[in-house]
Computed example of a mutant assay.
Amino acid sequence: MRFFLTTTAAAGLVAAMASSAASAQDVASSNWTGFYVGGQLGYNWQPTDGDEVVNFDRNRDGNFGDAFPNFSPGFCGGAPTTARPTSGCSKDNDSTAWKLHAGYDYQFGDTSGPVVGLIAEYGKSYLYDNVTAFSTTPAVYKLQAKLKSDGAIRARAGYSFETGTLIYGTGGAAYGKIRNSFSMSNTVNSATVNDPTKNAWGWTYGGGIEQKIGKFSVGALYTFTALKNNDSTVTVGSLAGVTPATNPFIAQNAAGTDFQRSFSKFAFHSVRATVSYRF
């Protein structure tokens, strides 16, 4: 519903501007060949991941999936609201997003025909993705991945009509700067985040509609993006003078137990309004 309403509003804006421009004879040409620069403003949301869990490597041999009975209360794909997963877990956030872009299109045909192009974009998103483990103590252990910024290099291909309307599909390589962090209510163990800040790579795909209005074009764009983020781990170990020798986190390896989230991707949907100046 969120995507439908946002896209409908954006498409309505494009149609209204196109109608006004046509009546004023502002559409100088329907040919898309050339360079352009512009910006995007929109909304991001994450797919449901309530079934995400935390995997453990208790002997630190690099293989995750070791049984850890102390975490029998379970897990939740979000942030904890209490010390028990059955009592509630907050959903990961949605957010606004903006980007700047530059690209080039080539049209086969003078007033209508196929269009191919390449676009580079970069900007800010404000998403974070949590997963929480609950122990029998009781205690909570939360892993958080926060998307600081993101961009992409996308190819696009579509068809331009004589009205100056372009419908297209798009896809390519995606990039994001992700900050991984960890927090716990356990006060007798230490915690170290390995590879906390990383350059994450992945892919993106989607489609959109765009309308030429003189030297400008306005449009609506939908994309789905998935970034690889399973390299970061957390080591929960002993705290000097505090952690007892019988502590379960150091039972199989004196250096501690490694945590890793089960989902390897940081994924999100996005719908954005676009505006470009075309040279």
Results as ranks from 00 to 15, higher is better:
80 P>Q: 09
244 P>T: 04
34 G>R: 03
19 S>H: 11
173 A>Q: 11
47 P>Q: 09
35 F>G: 00
229 N>A: 13
107 Q>I: 08
67 A>G: 05
198 K>P: 01
135 S>Q: 04
87 S>D: 15
59 N>R: 04
124 K>I: 07
190 S>D: 04
88 G>Y: 10
202 G>L: 05
244 P>A: 04
263 F>A: 04
115 V>F: 11
44 N>D: 12
17 M>E: 13
145 A>F: 09
28 A>I: 13
62 G>E: 06
36 Y>G: 00
193 V>F: 10
123 G>T: 00
31 N>L: 07
39 G>A: 07
48 T>M: 02
254 A>P: 10
48 T>G: 11
248 P>Y: 07
191 A>V: 06
67 A>Y: 02
121 E>W: 00
220 A>Q: 03
96 T>K: 09
96 T>S: 14
135 S>F: 06
191 A>Q: 08
63 N>K: 15
218 V>P: 08
80 P>W: 14
211 Q>E: 10
40 Q>S: 11
93 N>R: 12
130 N>R: 12
263 F>Y: 07
25 Q>L: 06
218 V>N: 07
211 Q>F: 03
173 A>K: 06
31 N>M: 05
231 D>N: 15
239 L>A: 14
120 A>F: 03
7 T>P: 01
120 A>S: 10
151 G>Q: 07
72 S>L: 04
260 Q>L: 14
271 V>I: 15
275 V>H: 00
225 T>M: 02
167 I>V: 15
47 P>L: 05
92 D>V: 09
226 A>E: 10
164 G>K: 09
241 G>C: 12
34 G>T: 06
28 A>L: 14
21 A>W: 09
49 D>M: 12
25 Q>R: 08
264 S>T: 12
212 K>A: 04
164 G>P: 08
20 S>K: 06
86 T>Y: 05
24 A>T: 05
146 K>N: 08
142 K>Q: 14
222 Y>S: 13
252 Q>F: 15
114 P>I: 01
237 G>Y: 13
250 I>P: 07
231 D>Y: 01
22 A>R: 14
99 K>Y: 09
83 A>G: 12
259 F>P: 05
212 K>S: 07
142 K>F: 01
250 I>T: 15
225 T>V: 12
213 I>F: 02
